[in-house]
Design a binder for these strands. Structure first.
Lengths: 221, 221
DNA sequence: TACCTATGAATGAACG
DNA sequence: CGTTCATTCATAGGTA
């Protein structure tokens, strides 16, 4: 009785950005260039070294935290994330004793690659997936996993609908409640949404942070 | 019945975290205290600042690289894909300089009052909350706490689903007392730990780097 | 400290 | 197309 379960998945990234409080460098770029001895040859700038030190430490702290969390996420995700699992391991003959629990089809879960492509296309298309297009997309994405056109269709439908709903809700909540707090732009607490490319955010943060040595590498695309 | 491993969200990572121990600085704490000018008033210690700076920068560089890799891996694996559950960006945590953090980001938890009202309404409605209704409910409950309509929506959804499920399960077990486990369909736990190696490497690097400055940040209080 | 339960949230699929 | 259902994930809180 080996029942496979696919845990993992995690969304701890949300915290990352909160921690990533990028701090400014007190020194301009040119100063940073000669990082071998930038703060000692300047008469009274010595104090700066100290500040910088502090800053650097903080940066490192942030980085450390970041890495830690990333590792965590990776740990969680790694377990079963790699590819589509639509047609692979999971032996569930949809047969329950006594009950009629049929139709227990496992739902398709797009992989990262697939999702990215889908979103891109979603962005391109104005509002109708168009059957023809769906076929193409399916073919395209089929290389990264097995699934049917119906999945794509559904995906677009859902995507559209939810997008709209989110917008509506946002707009609605935007209505000013005069008696209420002036502008508590703090409507968090359960209005996540926005679910964009989280990784992208991380990337941004990283790239912002890492002005010291590293430049950019993955930020491309 | 039980498999070999239990899958705990944080236990696997525990070792990683242990490696992220704070690394001692060549300076004692008291020195760090007066970080306003710790390395300038000491005749020959100035160089140290420089060295330290250099070291710190290197650390940052390494961290940056690590993060980069991590993000890359994450991107490849599942980031926004497999689970898609990763879109949890909540709003800023509002961290006060004093060290106070306003918890209450994350999951909305209905208060007693809210719950009562919700249940009452749930009982009234035949089974379709209807968006309009949700709006009202939200408005009404907003007096007892801040939350969005989505919460209400979700609440009803979950409520109904759960209700149904319970009923179904009850009916099923009522008709037949099978040998299966009627309590819960939660006999999962397979825990395929496979690709851990990657993380392992990274963790090694991280640990090499040392924590430097980091202490606890996100792991919560 | 570790597991379990309850439940809020996310999302693929289906219904009208 | 908009709305609802069903399933699963992830987390807060309780318990041993």
């Amino acid at each position: 009785m080996s029942q496979e379960k696919k845990y993992t998945r995690s969304s701890e990234i949300s915290e990352l950005k909160t921690e990533m409080v990028i701090m400014e460098w007190d020194q301009p770029q040119n100063q940073r260039e000669k990082n071998g001895n930038l703060n000692v040859n300047n008469g009274g700038v010595m104090v700066m070294a100290d500040e910088q030190l502090e800053t650097l430490r903080k940066q490192i702290a942030v980085y450390a935290s970041l890495c830690e969390q990333l590792v965590q996420m990776h740990n969680n995700l790694t377990l079963t994330a790699t590819g589509g699992r639509l047609g692979n391991l999971y032996s569930d003959p949809l047969m329950t004793p006594g009950g009629h629990k049929i139709s227990s089809r496992q739902r398709w879960t797009p992989t990262a690659v697939q999702l990215r492509i889908l979103e891109r296309i979603f962005d391109e298309v104005t509002g109708t997936p168009s059957k023809q297009k769906i076929r193409e997309i399916t073919s395209e994405l089929s290389q990264h996993g097995q699934f049917s056109e119906t999945n794509v269709y559904n995906w677009f439908q859902n995507r559209r609908a939810r997008s709209k709903r989110k917008q509506a809700v946002a707009a609605e909540s935007e209505v000013e409640t005069e008696v209420e707090s002036p502008n508590t732009k703090q409507d968090n607490l359960a209005v996540p949404q926005v679910k964009q490319d989280v990784c992208f955010e991380i990337s941004s943060q990283l790239h912002l942070l890492g002005g010291t040595y590293k430049q950019q590498a993955w930020q491309g695309e």
